[in-house]
């Protein structure tokens, strides 16, 4: 019960499946100014797959395992505060089973390194991720080459890859107005199928919106906006 409910509330569900419910692999990007909830959205993306029994790799660049784990625990605790004890335990168990955290130092993160660590698991059939979220990449510094590598990996492995990127606070208004990517992401925009932005309503920081800037797969029309719960990043109103 709890699971289905959470799947339905997940704002990112629309991106992971097509109208018939088949998995859609894509390369996605979440941008927002600092502190709005990029990591929380990435966790929601991961949960969307995990709750449907798929496996997810959570790559954390520059953060440790404990902190990353804490993100999941906090968000799970918040969205299912009303849930029964045993249902909650089962939920936590499926998260532990289907999530793998990999942390990297910012200076050493590269596709060969990532692949080396991924392949070890995939060849032995320990873990078969259908989705990977990458948190903590610095888009202003990252080499285009690296993202192209990721794009290739995404296509070859036929899995979804979602990255997060920070934009300047000042750039936010211009992006909302123009619905185009701000610098420094604009030069990288072509590598992503989907780009979404998180932003608060002007003047009211407690209202957070998810705004679709680009979606090459046409699951959500560009310009579409969805209000989210600011602490858990689930669709607003669904958590009553």
């Amino acid at each position: 019960m709890l699971k289905n409910d959470l799947i339905a509330k997940n704002p990112m569900g629309a991106f992971s499946r097509d109208a018939e419910g088949n998995e859609v692999a894509r390369m996605g990007l979440v941008i927002a100014r600092p502190g709005l909830g990029k990591t929380a959205i990435l966790v929601q993306i991961a949960l969307d797959s995990i709750l449907r029994g798929k496996q997810v790799v959570h790559v954390s660049v520059g953060q440790n395992i404990e902190k990353t784990k804490a993100w999941y625990d906090d968000i799970l605790g918040d969205i299912s505060a009303q849930a029964k004890h045993d249902e909650m335990e089962e939920l936590k168990l499926s998260v532990r089973r289907n999530r793998m955290i990999m942390t990297f130092n910012a200076s050493t993160f590269s596709r060969p390194k990532l692949e080396e660590r991924l392949n070890d698991m995939i060849y032995q059939d320990i873990f078969r991720p259908c989705c990977m979220v990458i948190d903590g990449l610095d888009l202003a510094r990252v080499e285009r080459r690296m993202l192209e590598d990721m794009r290739d990996l995404q296509r070859e492995a036929n899995m979804s890859i979602w990255c997060s990127g920070v934009i300047e606070r000042e750039a936010q208004a211009a992006v909302i107005a123009s619905q185009t990517l701000p610098a420094p992401c604009d030069a990288l925009g072509d590598l992503f199928d989907t780009v979404i932005m998180l932003h608060p309503e002007s003047g009211d920081e407690s209202k957070i919106f998810l705004n679709v800037l680009k979606d090459a797969t046409n699951r959500m029309a560009p310009g579409k906006s969805l209000r989210l719960d600011p602490t858990t990043m689930v669709v607003w109103g669904a958590t009553a």
Partner: peptide
């Protein structure tokens, strides 16, 4: 990782 997997282990993560 293979050895942990054989032991009903759940891999939480890997780090450098």
């Amino acid at each position: 990782m293979g050895s942990i997997n054989q032991r009903r282990g759940m891999i939480i993560g890997t780090f450098e």
